[in-house]
Amino acid sequence: MELTAPTTRSAATGWVFKNKWLLLIGAIVVGAIVYAYATNDRVTVAVLASTLRQSTPLILGALCGLIGERSGVVNIGIEGQMLLAAFVAFLANVYIGNLWIALIIGALTGALMGALLAFMAVTLKMDQIIGGTVINILAVGLTGYFYTAGLVTKGKFAPISLGPLADIPLIGPVLFNNPPITYLAIILVFAVHYVLFHTRWGLRTRAVGEHPRAADTVGINVFRTRYINVILAGAIAGLGGAFLTLEGVGSFERLMTNGRGFLALAIMIFGKWTPLGAWAGALLFGFLYALNTQLQFSGVGLPPQLIGSLPYLATILVLAGFVGRSRAPAASGQPYETEG
């Protein structure tokens, strides 16, 4: 982490040397994609497009988690935030019939749950694991209790083609012909990265997450910083939930998040609490998931349940083999108490 000297820039060669493994992996990935495209363009495009779609709710959930932890609030309630947002966004779509308004309402629902988490973690200084668990159970209860079968959806977001960009071979259909929440997720990855590491607000947020006492001493309002971050993070998780009902599936089912919030948590740790790292994790997972679907289709000799395990198994292997130890922001999980 460049926390101590965020403004130091190493020379270009230094940067290349520092990131040699990253560049090597990047080169291998690009090479593999090009090779696959040359071999079978249709399947390659399908797998990559599916990769991006599968990764969208995961990266949104992971962004939610890491923004919270960067400011010192552990959020294991992502699953609940997503589930409730998915439900409310679905209801909004059914009763209002406007996908964009439904999307905003979904984000607001997530933000509201974020506010609840912040209230528990910051104001009540409650154990943050319990706070997140409260949100998870609450979401299961509320969505289950108020769910009525037979509500008919008013459609879902269609892909928006970005003009000539979408006509580029391989890249076009994969990157530039997506529904809006998928674009939004990609933009948010870079936006959150920029805000966290290149703005004053981001520096303050990280200071609050690493050493709240020091941050407090130099005049940063720890409580306010945590509240704002956790609420904004909740809105992002809300987008992830809304993705499921407004863009992915199109309707609501009980417990439809199906552990994605927990996967997002795993991806956040996998990416070592950085937006770009988490995005890599989400894409890897999305890819394994897409590959999995292809394998099931093509009917390799293995039973489907065992093929179904591959994404999870591969994640463990990558984690154990390459990623290794990860370190949470120092003050993550600790309520802050002012002196005197």
Binding site: G259, A266, I269, S309, P311, Y312, L319, A320, R325
Partner: peptide
């Protein structure tokens, strides 16, 4: 390996 138990246990649930 330093692999975080939260990730590994979540993955092992699915497996």
């Amino acid at each position: 390996t330093g692999a975080h138990e939260v990730i590994v246990t979540i993955m092992l649930n699915y497996i």
